[in-house]
Nucleic acid binder design. Structure first.
Length: 480
RNA sequence: UCCUCCUUAGCUCAGUUGGUUAGAGCAUCUGACUGUUAAUCAGAGGGCCGCUGGUUCAAGUCCAGCAGGAGGAGCCA
């Protein structure tokens, strides 16, 4: 018989039909003559109830049906006589595929802390919470490709191993096949990377943007969606050493087109989650509520998860310049009362987390796009404004998460780009290919980077980025 | 990397101003129960109180160091 799955069965009213089903036991409740098993196979957050007539199954066999065990059953789909579910399965035959020794199996039908589950990341897929998160994660990956495909964008794979250390986006992981115990040395006594696999120093990519620009300057609209590696010693709930980033890059787009696209994309993704992951979102919302029950009222989030998603969907993002933001912050209550750890006085300072949070969570209470930052605090490739002081950067700031997107219109003018590279001491020779893109058929173009796991934080309402990626890589941790 | 906090049973936690045999709930095991919903009821087993050292008649409790974890900051997506 062909096997079915829990999701299909729960949606079915095709009663009294024989079915075959496999999955993992979540809980078992027994009494003298009847046993109930909640079975889950990952197809949905919901379990289906299996009903065993205890007199028809050997006690020994039923005893192996414990939390975490994998079983296969044949049975009849019935309209349920009990409360709490519309249908259930009267089991006719049982096969225990894989036992789970209850003395050893760490997951119980009870609440576990996220920290504990992180330590058993190989098993946490089997919990309701992580089942929901990773189903949503899949849908978001799919939705991103859908969004760009529908708009005529082309996905390109940019290199994961790169020789350019000029991307300027942080510390990099070295890639080498040299013997670390005894590396070859040159005449100066330094490590001779000419003898390394690629004949030069190479690292894992910190961004696919520069290569994506090359694609955009021929295919017009492209995007990358790949792994990204940063060797920063960041120990926060918002940073990973290995994460996934979406980087669209568009020819003939100015900063405003860029912002429009970013806002449209984020809203599309939120709507996609609401339309396709409602059960899982509802579960996560209830989980959050239970979590916050023990917290003081002022610390609780003021909006429920689904409400919050709708709120972002239904409101325009605020768009203001860095200069306007500085004015707001300078005249803000916390600044005047010296409540900021870093007071805002002069134009030109970089905004701290507390400032971004004030703007998003207190002042505007909705997502904010900040533009036109001082050129000193931004990357070399951003388009310089006429004022000579600012660049056409844009950062999309979300509540709780902070910067979810960072992007800009790119500098397409050859001379301006070269001057900026000189100022920032970026070696022109190594970057000849990037400069060539401005020498031949250069056009105005723009792009941005979306941190996929930060999007996941927002969609799922989770608090720690380590809980929205299956196997997080962070400083001092590469387990599993 | 910096600051703050945490580490007690398989899990989640309590443990008073340092004071005899260290507690609870859940899980596990045994038994009861004719449909349960994280079932319920009765009973049982289960602890180098993170590690090392110190103070003290006496340390889960105080002090120092180390390890692991969390929150915040910086770096950024």
């Amino acid at each position: 018989m062909k096997k079915t799955n829990v999701k299909e069965l729960l949606a079915s009213t095709n009663y009294d039909q024989e079915i075959k089903l496999m999955g993992w036991v979540r809980t078992k409740r027994t009494s003298k003559n009847v046993a109930f098993v909640a079975l889950n196979d990952g197809s949905t957050i919901n379990n289906i109830q299996l009903v065993f007539d205890a007199t028809e199954f050997p006690e020994k066999e039923l005893a192996k049906v414990t939390t975490g065990a994998a079983i296969s059953v044949n049975g009849i789909l019935k309209e349920s006589v009990g409360a709490g579910q519309s249908s259930e399965i009267t089991v006719k035959t049982l096969e225990v595929l894989g036992e789970a020794d209850p003395d050893e199996y760490p997951l119980q039908p009870k609440r576990h802390s996220l920290e504990f589950l992180r330590e058993i990341a190989h098993l946490r897929f089997r919990t309701n919470t992580f089942g929901a998160i990773f189903r949503i994660r899949h849908h978001m990956i799919f939705a991103i490709h859908n969004f760009f495909n529908d708009k005529g964008f082309f996905n390109i794979h940019t290199p994961i191993i790169t020789a350019s250390d000029a991307e300027g986006a942080g510390e990099m992981f070295r890639v080498s096949t040299l013997d670390p115990e005894n590396p070859p040395r040159n005449e100066e006594g330094k490590i001779d990377y000419k003898k390394d696999f690629f004949g030069r120093e190479t690292s894992l990519t910190v961004s696919g943007q520069l290569e994506a620009e090359l694609g955009a300057l021929a295919l017009s609209n492209v995007y990358t969606f790949g792994p990204t590696f940063r060797a920063e010693n960041s120990n926060t709930s918002r940073h990973l050493a290995e994460f996934w980033m979406i980087e669209p890059e568009m020819a003939f787009y100015d900063i405003h087109d860029n912002m429009d696209l970013a806002e449209e994309m984020l809203k599309y993704l939120i709507k996609y989650a609401l339309d396709n992951c409602y059960d899982d979102l509802l579960f996560l919302e209830q989980r959050l509520e239970n979590e916050e029950k023990n917290m003081p009222v002022e610390k609780r989030t003021d909006m429920k998860l689904i409400e919050k998603l709708h709120f972002v969907l239904d409101n325009d993002f605020v768009r203001i310049s860095y200069t306007e933001a500085i004015d707001i912050l300078r005249n803000s209550k916390p600044n005047k009362k010296k409540k900021f750890q870093y007071p805002v006085n002069d134009w030109g300072v970089d905004l701290q987390s507390e400032h971004e949070r004030y703007l998003v969570e207190k002042h505007f209470q909705k997502p904010v796009i900040l533009t036109d930052y001082p050129s000193e605090i931004k990357a070399f490739y951003m388009k310089q404004n006429e004022d000579g002081k600012t660049v056409r950067a844009m950062d999309v700031l979300f509540p709780q998460i902070g910067e979810i997107i960072g992007g800009s219109q790119r500098e397409e003018n050859l001379e301006k780009l070269r001057n900026r590279m000189k100022e920032m001491e970026i070696p022109e020779k190594e970057m000849f290919w990037y400069i060539d893109s401005r020498r031949f058929g250069s056009v105005p173009h723009s792009g941005y980077g979306l941190g996929f796991e930060r999007l996941m934080l927002f969609i799922t309402g989770m608090g720690n980025i380590r809980d929205v990626i299956p196997f997080p890589r962070t400083p001092q941790n590469a387990e599993f």
